[in-house]
Computed example of a mutant assay.
Amino acid sequence: MRTAIKISTIMLALLAGFFFQHFFASTEHSRPTLAKDKYCMLSTAPCTQHDVTMSLNSNTPHPLMPVLLTVEWPATTSSSLLLELTGLEMEMGKPVFQLKQLRPGVFQGEVIMPACTSSSMTWLGELSDGTQTVYPAIRTTR
């Protein structure tokens, strides 16, 4: 009886270790990365991706301080755009912002970057008109 309990305990521990390792390996691979050819780093200088031009009204956005994002998207028929952000250096949720149309093809919205414990943070974005998606990135500093 004791041998059966020992073998069962060992099997259970091995099985738990397998699932534990599999869980953490799969979450590690799902971390976002800043691929230079995928993301457009935003600043006051316009950045264009797939005929969509994006810019900020500040070169150094700060957490909890509003920054104005302007987007020129001439090929869209949408009346608004959605921006979803994901933290690169740490998981801080996925803040979502709406940009409203100023005139056909031009959108603007106020983005307030979440506060972070580190001195700087990179936010990777997905900006969508509901049909097409472009990928802005914003680097904040304290």
Rank of each mutant, 00 (worst) to 15 (best):
M54S: 03
S8P: 04
W123A: 00
S120D: 09
Y135K: 05
G17W: 11
P104Q: 15
P104E: 13
F97W: 03
H22G: 10
A16E: 04
T70M: 04
S80H: 13
S120K: 08
E110I: 07
I10C: 09
H62N: 05
E126M: 04
L68H: 09
M90G: 04
L68V: 13
T117G: 09
T33C: 12
S78K: 05
S78D: 07
A16I: 12
L14Q: 08
S8L: 14
I10S: 09
S30L: 11
G130M: 03
P66H: 07
T53I: 03
T141L: 10
T48M: 07
M41E: 12
A75Y: 13
V106D: 01
P104L: 06
M121N: 01
F24P: 05
T44A: 02
A4H: 14
D51Y: 11
E28P: 02
M113K: 02
E72R: 09
M65G: 12
T86D: 13
A25N: 15
S80E: 14
T86W: 10
G130W: 02
T53A: 08
E110C: 03
P74D: 10
M92K: 09
G105H: 04
T140E: 01
I7T: 13
A4Y: 12
L64F: 12
P61E: 02
M54N: 03
C40N: 07
L88F: 04
S80N: 10
Q49C: 08
S26E: 09
L56H: 00
G130Y: 01
L102T: 08
L99Q: 02
L42P: 05
K100F: 14
Q132W: 10
W73V: 06
V52I: 10
K94N: 13
D51W: 08
A13G: 11
R139S: 07
L124A: 04
A16M: 13
G17F: 12
P66T: 07
I112S: 06
M90H: 11
D37I: 03
T9E: 08
V52R: 07
